[in-house]
Design a binder for these strands. Structure first.
Lengths: 240, 240
DNA sequence: GGTCGGAGTTCCGTGTCACGGAACGAATTG
DNA sequence: CAATTCGTTCCGTGACACGGAACTCCGACC
């Protein structure tokens, strides 16, 4: 019951709806009757909403999701610096943490003329395909790097790093520069520059600025990104 | 089972944790045994996380909460204007919608030196105590106003409006000015100015700038807020 | 050391209610 | 009108949620 109801909620990934009863049922491999009952109960509770054109994830889920203390201190410390960074660059700013072999984005500031990006707050992307991911990887210790190299590297675009040697090279450069660059490895036409955020000696998060390739001027962006990441690290150490 | 599990999740409001087993049990008025089983199952699922010092709301909830399409178009249209408004004022910017007799905040941009505010994305406050709430109320039709007036007005501070006559007056002024002001009605020492966002003739949301009272200069803020709200309204009409 | 209390956890018998197949009404299509 | 597809209702069966009792830990107090 409980587990099945969360299966139903997961069926709404990644769009949040709308889905029709039948869609949900077959995504979950559940009988229509059961799905119907679950959706009805979830709707009573407010976890999903039903409208004319189907079911959606509901407000109750939104409200609870907002208070998940996931990296709360981190986000609290980071947001002002992210806004400053956005103000300085007017480009999309991301904050991400590592979960397993993925990046999970926990904050995002998007510019008005921002181009379409595959990232989304709460969403995941492979560590090796993103600037934030590579920055985290480079500062997370050799065990993680080995674990990543142990399995085939995932690819999002033709430019994604899939050669283990190239990845090791890239990690070396990141460690030397204190910054990670990414060009069209996550999104055709997009590039980004990322810097790690440290707390108590560990890279707990990373910050990035994403830019359409034609506007990508690493030397101009680097100091701002580095300064913001440093600022967040300092703010973090003050909170504890 | 399903309903009880959501009771358990609600027990984490408004902080998200940490809570000990016993705390959750008595908040929910459930036997400890039952609570224990529910928390264990929820933890397996990822809806809550257990650490040394207690239970927290978990990552799964965060990820699902992020994709709730609640006002998604609205937020998407509004964010760039909110960033601009923040940039122009460097004060906290809110976007809220109405749910019943509450405001639900759906976006918030907070300045670095922002003072403590009772608002939180996903959180609720009474319509009548906030600038956003009053702006929504003033443009939501007489039925809602009557419904609000029918029951005793809630108060957050000594300055909250609790006299029905004063509320009606205030609504009149808001309708005349197209802007709602609020001084220490939600938070001692805080003031705000809010403007409604329209879509297809209805006030679907409202935008506000919150300022510490000493810095509150309505005449300087008003044009920016009004312009941003108008911009969002225009952007909304373009999306559909 | 002994005792108490309160925490988290395990066990298990009972009774309920979740389950899903069958069947139905409505709407759409051929 | 037959045929399909969708959402919904009904209902008998059996799994499993329920919660009281009991147990284990651990710290406080005397």
């Amino acid at each position: 019951m409980l587990e099945k109801s969360w299966l139903v909620l997961d069926a709404f990934r990644p769009t949040g709806g709308p889905l029709r009863l039948t869609d949900v049922a077959e995504r979950c491999h559940l009988p229509k009757t059961t799905t119907f009952r679950l959706l009805t109960e979830l709707a009573e509770i407010g976890a999903v909403a039903r409208r004319e054109n189907g079911y959606y994830l509901g407000r109750r889920l939104f409200e609870l999701g907002c208070i998940v203390p996931l990296e709360r201190d981190l986000r609290h410390a980071a947001l002002p610096f992210m806004h400053d960074l956005y103000e300085a660059t007017h480009e999309t700013v991301h904050l991400g943490v590592r979960d397993g072999l993925d990046v999970v984005y926990v904050e995002k500031i998007r510019g008005q003329e921002a181009f379409a990006l595959p990232s989304r707050v709460g969403g995941r992307l492979p560590l090796t395909c993103t600037g934030i991911g590579k920055a985290l990887l480079a500062y997370s210790g050799p065990e993680l790097i080995e674990e990543v190299l142990a399995r085939p590297l995932r690819r999002l675009t033709p430019h994604s790093i899939v050669d283990p040697r190239r990845l090791e090279e890239a990690i070396g450069q990141i460690q030397a520069a204190g910054l990670a660059y990414e060009r069209e490895e996550a999104q055709p036409g997009g590039a980004c520059i990322a810097a790690p955020v440290f707390h108590e000696g560990a890279a707990v998060a990373a910050l990035s600025v994403s830019v359409p390739l034609p506007r990508f001027h690493p030397t101009r962006l680097a100091p701002a990104v580095k300064a913001a990441a440093l600022g967040i690290s300092r703010a973090l150490s003050r909170t504890i």
